[in-house]
Structure formats: C-alpha cells, structure tokens
C-alpha cells in the first residue's frame, strides 16, 4: 500500500482535482524537474535557454478543460505555483495579468524567472485523441531559440490530483514507497484481517500506518493528527468562504448560488442555534 491519507486529501484549487490540480502539478513538475533541475553539457540549467513552451492536451483534458480551468492551471503550474499553497486571490491576479500581457513568468516561483510568450489559445488541442494509458493526458515541450527541443514529457492526471509521468511506473505516483508499514493492505479483506488480529478499529490501523511514514519526525503521532486537523480546518473555511460569496457561479451557465441564501433562511427560522451551524 503506497497511498497516504495526505495523498488522498490534499488542499488544492477548484473546480476539478483531475482537471485543475493535476495539470497544475504536472506543469510545475515539468518546470522544476526538466527545466530548473536539469542542466545541459555545459552545466547551464535548461531553464536559461528556454525560448518557448508548447502545451498539447489530449482527451478529456482538452474536451472539458475550458470549463475546469485546466488551461490557466497549466500556466500557473509553469510559473511554479503549488496547487496546495496558492491563494485564490493570487490565482485571480496572475490569470488576469497573463491574459492581459500574454507573458508567462516561467519558473518565477521556483527562483528562476524567465519570461516567455504563451497564451492558452496557443495550446494544441486533441479532444478526440485518447492516449492508451489514461484519457487525461498532456504533453509539455520546451524549445530554445534555434527551435531545438530541450525537454519533453507526457503527464497523466489520474484523478484526485495524482499525476504520473510517462516515464514512471503507475505505482510510483506517491511518496513513501520504501516505507515499511506496520499494517499494509490493498484490499478490504486484508484490512479486516488486521482489525481482527489486533482488535484495533480501522482508524487506528490507518493512524499506525501514517505514523510509520513519518518515523524521522520526533513526534509522528502529533504531526499526523495536526495534519488531519489542518485538513478539517480548510474544509470548514471553504464552507465559510462560500457563504460570503455573491452572484451566479462563474462559467456562463448562470447557475444560482444557494448556500448563502439557505444559510440566512435557516438562521432566521432558528435564531437560537449557534452560528456555527
């Protein structure tokens, strides 16, 4: 078992983990690993020679990407923004700036800013092409001033924000594969067998596994529990933030927001209730 709670539950931006978070992570990985982290024979990081970047989208990423914010998420990823850290206001600000100027600050958030011209309209769209490995596929290429290919990689966004590169084994999309877990399981039958033999509930089996992943930490248990609490706080803040918004949902479908109105009505019906409800 290689999947951690913190792989499954990760903080990211909306509206889609496979179409927004995944592509953003893939683009950031490409910039970090292939351009900033790779040098040419002369020892110069490839990022310093990049003149342009090509983005090619396949299948579902291309077909529904516009509505899912895929295209702008890729631009943000190329700039090096991390899906789990970027704030919504930073997203809005950069997208507006990139749309206005047509300039992407490649790797700027990774400390190696290089400005290139790239608009989402330049992306190569192949909505009817489904790559064998997964329908959500994207290929990124970096080219220098002489049209010479510097780097190329295909990434698959396999759901929930998980990303696998073409050159990787599908099983290696999460960290900690070399960790020996006290209660490894892939199936429910194996999980139930651990519960029976230890007398522990499912949550404690999972907690023991999560702690084993952080064996280098002085206090793995507190670290895991604090991490989980942080996820819960983001969930709560997400709900509260929604109640402060107004107007129809973005995207042109003119879908009405219901949460703020419903909250106000429930509050009126039962003013005795704690406001947290």
């Amino acid at each position: 078992m290689s999947v951690s709670l913190f792989d499954l539950f990760s903080v990211g931006v909306g509206p889609s983990s496979s179409h927004t978070v995944g592509p953003m992570r893939a683009a950031r990985r490409f910039t970090a690993e292939k351009l900033v982290g790779t040098a040419d024979d002369g020892g110069t990081p490839l990022i310093e020679r990049v003149d342009s970047v090509q983005v090619e989208l396949f299948g579902s990423l291309s077909a529904t990407g516009a509505g899912h914010g895929t295209f702008t998420a890729i631009l943000l990823g190329l700039e090096g923004w991390a899906a789990e850290k970027v704030r919504p206001d930073q997203v809005d600000e950069r997208i507006a700036a990139m749309e206005a100027s047509g300039t992407v600050q490649l790797a700027a958030q990774l400390g190696h800013r290089r400005d290139i011209t790239l608009r989402t309209a330049d992306f190569i769209q192949r909505p009817l092409t489904h790559l064998e490995r997964h329908s959500n596929a994207m290929t990124l290429r970096a080219v220098d001033g002489d049209d010479q290919l510097l780097a190329e990689e295909t990434y698959y966004s396999v759901g929930g924000g998980f990303v696998v590169a073409e050159t990787e084994d599908p099983g290696t999309d999460s960290a900690g594969d070399d960790v020996v877990l006290p209660y490894p399981f892939r199936t429910s039958a194996e999980l139930m067998a651990h519960c029976r033999s230890t007398g522990l509930p499912v949550s404690q089996i999972m907690l023991a596994n999560e702690c084993a992943r952080r064996e280098d930490s002085p206090d793995p248990r507190s670290e895991v529990l604090e991490g989980i609490w942080h996820l819960w706080e983001v969930m709560e803040e997400c709900k509260n933030s929604a109640l402060r918004r107004e107007g129809p949902l973005p995207g042109g479908l003119k879908v009405r927001r219901r949460a703020p109105d419903w909250h106000a009505r429930l509050w009126q019906q039962d003013p005795e209730r704690s406001h947290a409800y």
């Binding site: 499954l8 539950f9 990760s10 903080v11 990211g12 931006v13 909306g14 509206p15 889609s16 983990s17 496979s18 927004t20 978070v21 914010g69 704030r87 919504p88 997203v91 809005d92 759901g159 929930g160 924000g161 996820l231 983001v234 969930m235 803040e237 997400c238 709900k239 933030s241 929604a242 918004r245 949902l249 973005p250 995207g251 879908v255 927001r257 219901r258 949460a259």
Partner: peptide, 15 residues
C-alpha cells in the same frame, strides 16, 4: 459552490 468558484478546497478524494 466554493469549488465551482475556483476557491481553496480539500480533494476528498477529488474536487
């Protein structure tokens, strides 16, 4: 709705 607005959410397990 927050997710549809591009806000910060937890993938649980997806957006």
């Amino acid at each position: 709705e927050e997710n549809a607005s591009g806000g910060r959410v937890v993938t649980a397990p997806t957006n």
